[in-house]
Design a binder for these strands. Structure first.
Length: 507
RNA sequence: GCGCUGUUCGUAUAAUGGUUAGUACAUCUGACUUUCUAUCAGAAAAUACGAGUUCAAUUCUCUUACAGCGUACCA
């Protein structure tokens, strides 16, 4: 594995790249970087019916945001280009012909309707229709293995549509090697003769994929588990071309958080979390899907979370920088079973990353939110606010809700809390408190604390009797950081004003 | 249906042919003689079922169940 590791991420531009795709890209990236290799982006757009114009740019932007950019790909270091399969179209025909010549492939003229009929027939009899030697011999199929050479030529020159199919060997047991799953055994007789070349002149995924991986000198194919059933075909194709096969690793799927099945966009909508890295607008329907970026996640937290979905370092470390990940990542520690996605854990990661940021960084990120709320304040004050509230925040977007009372007087009081904490006697108690506060010359945390606590002790009442209504007066609800911090931050004047407001509103 | 793959606390996972099966998220409880969605402490919680191999299996093998993927001229 030492020399020339080259991996590729090969998505189809059929829509937004979802979490599973990002994870596949990430694992490819990590593997490449770990081995000083190259990470290639290849766009597999051989299916023109499913092509979506804004999808490719989305994929590029998403990788960019995740900080896992490709080394080679469309418009970048194109030494093995082009990197869009549609632009490589002319190339594939010759490889299909090569297989035809070598006897590893053949022409087939069956129409979709005929094949559907065969499938239905078999199903009705409780059998599976497999397009392979077994059915070839029965003479039901129309292809160059059963037709004479003249007939084939005739059909082709008559302009009849045809596909090229792979001729799967008969009665053979294949032992396949997967980097995460080990050995896999399969009988060739259970395999279909897959279409390699479509009647529209485009290769299918299977052909294009193998040809491109070979031409681009890919050393390791790391892809989703949905490709595992195609592994025998791909291995056979390498054999047919007499090319050296890359190593394969199949990643398990990401499953929905509750219930069964793989994660889909619907799950995200239903449970309230994004399944895409960036916001995505569907070109046809105009539907907008939310993204992790727009929801306020840090990309490094998002990546950290994804890295631990189906992989673990074998230690108890959970927080990793991208650099640490590239050092630690190992295909051998990728798990074989599917992983349920956990939105909660994702939030936890974001919270951890948020705590690690400095107050300066966070204050800067907070600025736009303050502007939105028509608040301006000096940088030092904002940083101080951030330092007091950040430990309760998961997102920067939480900041305003956690700190608005540092900038403006509360306009409403939590109903339940006022009922419970604001008693008959509270009003006069608060008025007394006002005079205690007025008497404090130097309004520092220490002074406020000693004077107010001293006063409470001398009155021989519980702290809660004073502090709870005071919190209500200053904050509007029973939440937030230390009260003495709040008082000294907003200042003596504002403190007194807010207490008076509360007395007026609640007594 | 057939083929392939998988199955450890609710979830993500660790470890091991012999241990009290570890950790994190979530949950519950307590603490913080002032709040909390925060923090700290604690609790509860798992080797899918059944066989076999073995002195001993959660670990190896097989059956079953369940799940996922594939079974397209889609990728």
């Amino acid at each position: 594995m030492s020399e020339n590791v080259r991996v590729r991420f090969a998505p189809s531009p059929t829509g937004a790249l979802h979490i599973g795709g990002v994870r596949t890209a990430l694992f490819n990236y990590l593997f490449a970087k770990k081995h000083n290799g190259t990470f290639v982006l290849r766009i597999e757009d051989t299916d023109q019916t499913r092509y979506v114009a804004n999808a490719e740019q989305y994929i590029v932007d998403a990788l960019e945001w995740c900080n896992i950019p490709f080394d080679e790909g469309p418009g970048k270091n194109e030494k093995f280009g082009p990197y869009r399969q549609s632009e490589r179209k002319d190339l594939y025909k010759k490889y299909a012909d090569e297989l035809l010549e070598k006897g590893w492939a053949y022409y087939a003229f069956d129409t979709s309707e005929e094949l559907d009929a065969h499938r239905k027939d078999h199903e009705a009899n409780g059998k599976t229709f497999i397009y392979n030697w077994h059915n070839r011999e029965k003479g039901r199929l129309v292809n160059s293995l059963v037709l004479s050479e003249e007939e084939v030529q005739q059909k082709i020159s008559a302009g009849e549509k045809y596909v090229v199919r792979f001729k799967t060997p008969q009665d053979e047991t294949l032992i396949l090697e997967d980097e995460v799953r080990g050995k896999i055994k399969i009988e060739t007789n259970t395999l279909d003769d897959k279409v390699l070349f479509k009647s529209d002149g485009m290769p299918t995924y299977h052909l294009a994929n193998i040809v491109d991986d070979h031409l681009m000198e890919i050393s390791h194919v790391i892809r989703g588990e949905e490709w595992l059933p195609s592994l025998p075909l791909h291995t056979l194709l390498y054999r047919a071309f007499e090319w050296e096969s890359p190593k394969f690793a199949h990643l398990s799927l990401i499953l929905k958080p509750v219930g069964k099945g793989k994660l889909s966009k619907r799950d995200g909508d239903k449970l309230g979390f994004p399944v895409f890295p960036l916001e995505y607008t569907n070109e046809k329907t105009g539907d907008v899907s939310r993204g992790y970026k727009e929801d306020g996640y840090f990309s490094d937290a998002f990546i950290n979370m994804l890295s631990l979905l189906g992989w673990n370092p074998g230690t108890e470390q959970e927080l990793f920088t991208l650099e640490e990940l590239t050092k630690t990542f190992d295909l051998a520690r990728v798990s074989k079973s599917g992983a349920k996605f956990s939105p909660d854990k994702t939030k936890w990661f974001n919270q951890q990353y948020l705590q690690q940021k400095t107050n300066e960084e966070l204050a800067t990120l907070f600025l736009p939110l303050l502007e939105e709320n028509n608040v301006s304040s000096d940088a030092i004050y904002i940083q101080k606010v951030v330092s007091l509230i950040k430990e309760r925040a998961v997102f920067v977007n939480d900041f305003w809700g956690l700190s608005s009372f540092f900038f403006e007087d509360p306009t409403a009081y939590d109903e339940k809390a006022s009922k419970k904490q604001w008693k008959e006697t509270t009003g006069s108690l608060m008025e007394e408190l006002v005079s205690v506060i007025e008497a404090i010359e130097d309004f520092s945390i220490e002074n406020a604390q000693t004077d107010i606590k001293g006063w409470i002790t001398s009155k021989e009442i519980g702290f809660g009797k004073v502090m709870q209504p005071l919190r209500l007066s200053l904050v509007g609800k029973l939440a937030g950081p230390d009260l003495f911090e709040i008082m000294t931050m907003i200042g003596k004047e504002a403190t007194i004003k807010r207490i008076k407001n509360a007395i007026a509103a609640l007594s």
